[in-house]
């Protein structure tokens, strides 16, 4: 017997991250109450995003065209690669306007406690890309911009260890007191790190 379509929609929506059954039910009834054209557009948008968005074969960013706009551009600094966890992090770095190099998206970070190892993220693709740099981009620096969490740091240390033999400079984005922050209310780990990585002015 066919399943109740409302129950099926709730079931599918509840699989989305951060969506519980109550929210899924609310969303399902919102869709039911909306014009039929809205439901068709929503369904088409979901199908389109799955059919048209692919991973860039160079940097693993999500893109409609391969290579992506960053890898395909002739105006970017091809000697530097910024390594980020997720495509959303790439957008955040790009929005600063401070970086004009290339990117590499790992799609995750190493996590010893969760058993996420090097083969579970796009690290092999980074190594292959850098090993082939004589035929590709003349990369001399890799900037690791993973989050300043335990897993992000572990990933940065591992990338540094992997790239050491390739003779490429590996740098880490700075971390410490945020702009507008207050030393008095800064936690020990952050303040300690800010002091350890202080710079001459």
């Amino acid at each position: 017997m066919a399943r109740d379509p409302i129950a099926e929609l709730v079931n599918q929506l509840a699989k989305l991250p951060g969506i519980g059954e109550k929210t899924a039910t609310r969303l399902a009834f919102h869709i039911l109450g909306a014009p039929a054209s809205y439901a068709r557009d929503l369904a088409a948008a979901i199908i389109q995003v799955k059919e048209r968005i692919v991973l860039c074969s160079r940097c693993c960013n999500l893109t409609e065209a391969d290579p992506c706009i960053y890898c395909g551009s002739t105006r970017r600094d091809r000697s530097k690669i910024c390594v980020v966890e997720r495509p959303t992090d790439l957008r955040a770095v790009e929005a600063t306007g401070e970086f004009r190099g290339l990117y590499h998206v790992l799609h995750g970070v190493l996590s010893p406690l969760e058993g996420i190892g090097p083969d579970d993220i796009k690290l092999r693709e980074l190594i292959t890309r850098l090993q082939d740099r004589d035929d590709g981009d003349p990369v001399d620096e890799v900037i690791v911009a993973t989050n300043p969490s335990t897993d992000g740091e572990t990933t940065a240390l591992y990338v540094s260890r992997l790239l050491g033999p390739l003779g490429i400079t590996v740098s880490r984005i700075a971390s410490g007191i945020p702009m507008g922050g207050d030393l008095e209310y800064t936690d020990k780990a952050t303040l300690g790190r800010a002091l350890a990585h202080r710079r001459t002015i």
Binding site: P112, E153, T154, L157, S160, K188, A189, G192, A196
Partner: peptide
């Protein structure tokens, strides 16, 4: 939650973190 002690020597080494 407030940090009482962190281990900078561990966090700066892949081997020690592992």
């Amino acid at each position: 939650a407030e940090v009482i002690e962190h281990f900078a020597g561990v966090e700066s080494s892949f081997d020690k973190t592992s």
